[in-house]
Design a protein around this nucleic acid. Sequence first.
RNA 1: GGACAGUUGGCCGAGUGGUCGAAGGCGCACGCCUGGAACGCGUGUAUAGGGCAACCUAUCUAGGGUUCGAACCCCUAACUGUCCGCCA
Length: 413
Amino acid sequence: MIDVKLLHKNFDETVAALLRKKVDVTLLNDLKTAHETLKSAKLAYESLQAKQNELSRLFGQYKKEGKNIDALKNEVDSNKAALVTLLETQRLAEDALDAIIMTIPNLPDSDVPHGEDENDNVEIAKVLTPRVFEFPIKDHVELGDTLGLDFEAGVKLAKSRFTVMRGDMARLERALINYMLDFNAQRGFHEMSLPYMVNADMLRGTGQLPKFEEDLFKIGDENLYLIPTAEVPLTNLLYDEIVTAETLPIKMTAHTPCFRKEAGSGGRDVRGMIRQHQFHKVELVAITHPDQSDDMLNEMVQCASDLLTSLELPHRLVTLCDGDMGFSAAKTIDIEVWIPSQNTYREISSVSNTRDFQARRAKIRFKEGKTNSLVHTLNGSSLAVGRTMVALIENGQHEDGTLTLPTVLDRYL
RNA sequence: GGACAGUUGGCCGAGUGGUCGAAGGCGCACGCCUGGAACGCGUGUAUAGGGCAACCUAUCUAGGGUUCGAACCCCUAACUGUCCGCCA
């Protein structure tokens, strides 16, 4: 979450920055008021509590000395009644503040381009040139029919947006996961195996809750949620921890399935494997010193881009404009892979620096000398496996429906 | 799933109603000692919020209750351990 103190100090600047993320200004005014209310409520409560503590101490002393305690008891009792009211006021103020601040998105970095939506994202670079096909190309749904993508079976077993992979396709998925994990390990990212369900606190820590509950699959009566990305368990491994500065940066990678309701996606991408309720993804997460996070963002983007290059997949890097950025991000660079059947680039990785936004929510700090400060957290896909398969199938297709895969995968297949 | 036991600071561990934010030890940091080190000695060593200095408030798994006052008593939950049942 954002820093309330900063909001107070630079109210106009903060409002301006958050307007770019489409935040309602009245909310920010409410937030400021709530914070002021809370401060005065706390002050009132704490000073009376201090007095009460002193009286209680006296009470014990008087009793021990056999003094009369009637007058003292009267005072203590009336204070107590007042304390109960003050505490209630404080709690209400706290809840009000919390309810607002937890729904306020992160401030965009100053160098993030302005814009409304994905059309205003700024291309940074193109890597590899898309192949020119000399025959009518098929999309991955048509090709998958013979290769082993079974969309009907997915629907039968669960519902739409689920897919079954048979034989070589199932093996390709497994190979890609292994290849990506090994690739990331070589770049110093420590491999993790994680729970695919987490509790609500963790989801608040990384920013999925309370605002985006409708995007998550909740487990019946268990109070657990299926993870929408490995970013959640990976980042929250450090939840409420204080690490020493020397241990930074902490670089981690993990493969997990990801579960998303895709509630807001309407009827987009219903065909094929682009947008699924369940998909595999290999994720990168870094916990850094505030001074390191800019470099780390580049390192992670480079890592994902190099991975795509090694898979011989044409792609481009774009900086997201403020209007298209996610809730927790201060800056996001998307990597989009070439999809021949759509004649366009589609997102296959998204790398974000959240700065101290998640760290403040998840209470992740580092100790440097005697002082504790918030770390910076970053996350990025490396890569979405299903979309990588789509890209490999479509980019590597032949006229007869067969497929050539990049040689780096040879030893994994 | 059933029965019983437990959950205290970075760790171990005392503490069963009144300066207990918490003894003691270990670890760690700094200083002394040493040619250097170990040993020894001394000092310091939680987090958050407010003043932003003294100091104040909160926190002994979490939430609720009893009490003038709770780490300590009561209730609920979570977690851990052990035994039984079940199971990959």
